[in-house]
Write a protein that binds this DNA or RNA. Structure first.
Lengths: 276, 276
DNA sequence: ATTGACTCTCAACTAACTTGAGGGTGCATA
DNA sequence: TATGCACCCTCAAGTTAGTTGAGAGTCAAT
């Protein structure tokens, strides 16, 4: 006895089109195909194969893998290897989904609290090492942060260019005293990326900012007066993340024209983090 | 300042081709495109958008959903709705993967025990109700199972055909005394599916075998003498499944020529199950 | 002979990109 | 000024595991 594709599909609880597809890719060919009409006829015996196929698919294996398992009778070791691989893969997926769920949950709570989509997204990325000309100094108080930094930026920039160097990235400030805004005197450094070979002096050093694998990053748009919000978002994210701060904060002035519209300024705040 | 696509890609830690794709689908267009060369130029300001995009992608949302969230500033309620939907979806996926993992684990253990891929696959499926002509009887002992069944099958078949009926499915035996092979006298029924309206007598009844939503099914190929293996596999599966038996076992003789080669016979064993 | 359910092939579509071919640009160096 | 090299462009095709649809042919019963 032989079954038409629809009957076979009902027995195996899958769609006719799936069966035609399995035929096309050579995974399960009908026992017989009418030479004139092209009708596919399946044998009851093939139900056994189909069930094996479906069982393997149910484990999450790809059709390609299933073809290998069904086609040649593979050595047991290889089969086990494939399964163990799949196991690891599934475990990874499970962990992944768990983290995703936590993030979705956090996002929902955040929206509930703020009543809108948050303005700041903290993303974790990796950054390459950067060779910089750098001045280390301190800022006496919050009031003079901007003017102090401006002066230092100008000094480093002038020095590099004055020594025939080329600037190859955005002006960057580094805060050594922790990522939150501290009240009093702060250790700060001001740096310009450069590839050029230039001399150092007692003020300007050449240094390499280290690569960071897990760098929390948030982008602030607008004047410096509101940059506190970005820091607040970063700190809040940090608290309920599995990370803790692991290095000086970097402030990259991606877009900064002192004479331009402050609303167009773009600053990236980077905080090296490590799993707690 | 503007960034070439490669620079922007490095900042956002994604591929150039992904950015081109986002441009193509209108999800994130470059701030500027050179009219003559087609070069895409991005503004630092767009990094903010990109981060938001990536954060949403990270939650597992589709690009279409992200487009909606980014495009119009959707009402908060709708955003929360989407996130909650996603949450439920992720939860489902997580459960799914957990089950898959258990099945992969079981399969590995099985292969380890048997030293090869198992010969029997148990699959759970649903079956429709079947109208049958049926005789209920008992089998006095295991020795005479085959001959008794043969006699009963012949009796029912002859009766249906003799009354002008048509047989619309495989001969089916039903075992009422539990799925394992019991030692002594067994309640059994023997049935032929039929759609025809035929009379009953005191031997042959017309009945409807009920639909079963969760029917464990295993396909045996070969003579009846080895069908015990299929039952063994089914029982073993049952034990370590979350199910228990929930009705009489059905034995469908999908392929059965009494005079033919027994190695060609195909029998499906069906066991209704329900979550314990 | 007709009807209705079923089947065939072939092409196009899905999501979110990636890969590759073939050709054009931008910029720094010799 | 030429040249090299890294980068950029477009367009087509490929990826998974099928589904959907058009247009045409077939089966089996009445």
């Amino acid at each position: 006895m032989r079954l038409k594709i629809g009957e076979f599909a009902r027995m195996g609880q899958l769609s006719v089109s799936a069966l035609r597809y399995y035929d096309e890719v050579g995974l399960l060919r009908p026992a017989e195909v009418d030479r004139w009409t092209g009708y596919r006829y399946y044998a009851y015996e093939q139900l056994w194969m189909l069930n094996r196929l479906l069982a393997l698919k149910d484990l999450g294996l790809s059709l390609e893998q299933i073809r290998q398992l069904l086609g040649a009778e593979l050595p047991v070791e290889q089969i086990k290897g494939m399964l163990r691989l799949k196991q690891a893969e599934l475990q990874e997926q499970a962990d992944d989904i768990k983290e995703r769920l936590a993030r979705v949950q956090a996002r929902i709570e955040q929206i509930e609290k703020e009543g809108k989509m948050p303005d700041y997204e903290v993303v974790v990325k990796s950054v390459e090492p950067v060779r910089v000309g750098i001045i280390k100094d301190s800022v006496p108080s919050m009031e003079v942060v901007n003017v102090t930094l401006s002066r230092l930026f100008e000094e480093v920039g002038r020095y590099i260019v004055g020594n025939g160097g080329q600037i190859s990235g955005p002006p960057t400030a580094l805060w050594y005293s922790g990522p939150s805004m501290p009240p009093a005197e702060m250790e700060v450094a001001v740096a310009f990326p450069t590839e050029s070979a230039i001399p150092t002096n007692e003020r300007v050093q050449i240094e390499e900012l280290p690569a960071v694998d897990t760098m929390a990053s948030v982008v602030h748009r607008g004047p410096f007066s509101t940059i506190g919000e970005a820091y607040a978002a970063l700190m809040h994210w940090l608290e309920q993340s599995p990370y803790q701060a692991a290095g000086p904060t970097r402030e990259l002035n991606l877009e900064f024209e002192p004479t331009g519209d402050p609303n167009k300024w773009v600053t990236e705040i980077q905080l090296p983090v490590a799993e707690a």
